[in-house]
Design a protein around this nucleic acid. Sequence first.
DNA 1: ATTAGCACTCAACGAGAGAGAGTGCTAACA
DNA 2: TGTTAGCACTCTCTCTCGTTGAGTGCTAAT
Lengths: 338, 338
Amino acid sequence: MDERKKQILESIIKDYVETAEPVGSRAVVKKHALRLSPATVRNEMADLEEMGFLEQPHTSAGRIPSERGFRYYVDCMMEKESLTEPEAQILHDLLLENMQEWSTVVERTGHFLSQITKYPSFIIIPPFNLSEFRYLQILPMEPGKAFIFLVSDMGTIIHRKIDIPETIKEEDLRSISKIFNQIMRNRRMDEIRKSELQELRDTLKKKRRVIDRTLEALEHMLEESGEEKVVISGALNMLNEPEFKDLERIKRLLAVMEQDSLWKGLVPDSISEAVDIRIGKENREESLQEMSLVFTGFKGFGDVGKIGLMGPVRMEYWKAAGAIEAVRNIVEEMLKRL
Amino acid sequence: MDERKKQILESIIKDYVETAEPVGSRAVVKKHALRLSPATVRNEMADLEEMGFLEQPHTSAGRIPSERGFRYYVDCMMEKESLTEPEAQILHDLLLENMQEWSTVVERTGHFLSQITKYPSFIIIPPFNLSEFRYLQILPMEPGKAFIFLVSDMGTIIHRKIDIPETIKEEDLRSISKIFNQIMRNRRMDEIRKSELQELRDTLKKKRRVIDRTLEALEHMLEESGEEKVVISGALNMLNEPEFKDLERIKRLLAVMEQDSLWKGLVPDSISEAVDIRIGKENREESLQEMSLVFTGFKGFGDVGKIGLMGPVRMEYWKAAGAIEAVRNIVEEMLKRL
DNA sequence: ATTAGCACTCAACGAGAGAGAGTGCTAACA
DNA sequence: TGTTAGCACTCTCTCTCGTTGAGTGCTAAT
């Protein structure tokens, strides 16, 4: 793989990514003002095809990069294109404004990403019960009803309504809350064992009714929150890619995107710094095999979420990878400051 | 408009809704086993076209109902098809399971509707600040930080983080909460005037710092929550309709659906019992003029939300209207019981 | 008032011709 | 030995044109 071949491969990739059309020998020469004749380039292209980096849709068309070609480019030649200064600034401001709630941070970030890159973005949020318990509070509402609030270290809040005896006083609720808090504070939610809660139930016999209800609610809440959440943004950007001008494909594609379960298993649990790239058939899931993913993990407070972009195989990997990396860094930095 | 014409119009509508193809005179006779010849029907069809209820895509095709034809049918002939017994049961159970939180109720209801009818559903939720204030609570978190919770009568909760002096005690927070509650309880959020809050600020001079922060936060929260929320479900169902086999149309359509602002102005503030139907160009918004809407308002606790379905002009209005009405009734009933 | 018969219209489909882009091979060239 | 010009060949794409068939409107008969 000499320098000239590399140059030609890159040239073809850039061209193909831009136009979605097979690239001919003539176009390569012209575009990059090479001091070679088309015939020479043709020979090189034939070599590259033999090596598996290019393919021909039909005999008399130009060449397009194969998935292996893209892979080689991504591994050995690509230079990531980070966000521009103003773009980074915008994201910064966006996050500052929305640090109140974790869910809106995620939403805005995804939206930003897909706007910048014109690719659909996905963010996978770790299950609530993998974050740390911060605070539980039982608040009385109308007579006989109370709310339980559960606050995590990520600033996420879930709540649930329970029935309580009408006679119980606010102070009692407070003291019950306090005891729950003592046991659970700073523990990871999924580590809070039922046995401990049971123990607590025994300790506090006198307020049995409230405690029972609280425990029940708590169990429900923790159970329900064991799922990862997937947020997809800018899915419609995909419709602009010429490879999806076929209605059937679009339907399949959008259906896939809507299907949360697919995403959940998708991305490995590595906490690697690197930006991972999956090109076409490198994706295990059949329905994603005509697409590419560019993603990375990010650290919340120890927990790992994932953030990524999806596009056609003919994707601007350099832009996507650069954007993902930059966004990951900015978000992580903001989270640390919290 | 004699009986026979009506019968023919209905026949054409049913056929066209099902097949999305122009209906010929022959088909009308066959389908409904009329004891007439195609020629007779042709004459009637010519009349109906003259009246504006039918139109011809081109000279030698069958007829399709015009928007006016649909309108006449909907107004004068249609019989709504309610949910089947098991369908209603499913919705019932679904709601019972999810009465905890208003937002999930809405989500599930929308999902249910679009599954049953195969049309995208939309639900417009009144702004948070139109519901009644139930409860405010200031909860201390880590030192120097606290959460403000605001609970509405719909069971919706919003919250925000504020800074507080580290020295302040929990009881102080409680007493502050209490005072807020006395002023605001059971008032509609948007009626709580700044002047009142200002007054409160003066009363409680000694805890100025906390109160200031709380008021600031409160202002923000109420401001931010002045927006209606739109939840759309099953948008992809639309892709199955043959009239949207054109890519450009799909793009436009999906872009429209994503655009919240469109929906907000869309539906009038009537609290009418009736199910409203907008056919094609009856919609003011240009981008919705190739679509029909079937919707109605529902009462929360005095507040009005809206729930509806959208489809092509060639829509099963009877099914959509029936489903909407039934769902509205069930949801309202459940809310009343709360 | 209804119907049979018939000429007419028009979209949809498919075959076939022509254009154009791009290749691979061969032979000439530096 | 690497590079280039020339040329025949391949294959898709597009356009045209005739054919088909569904459906109509009109007229005359019942």
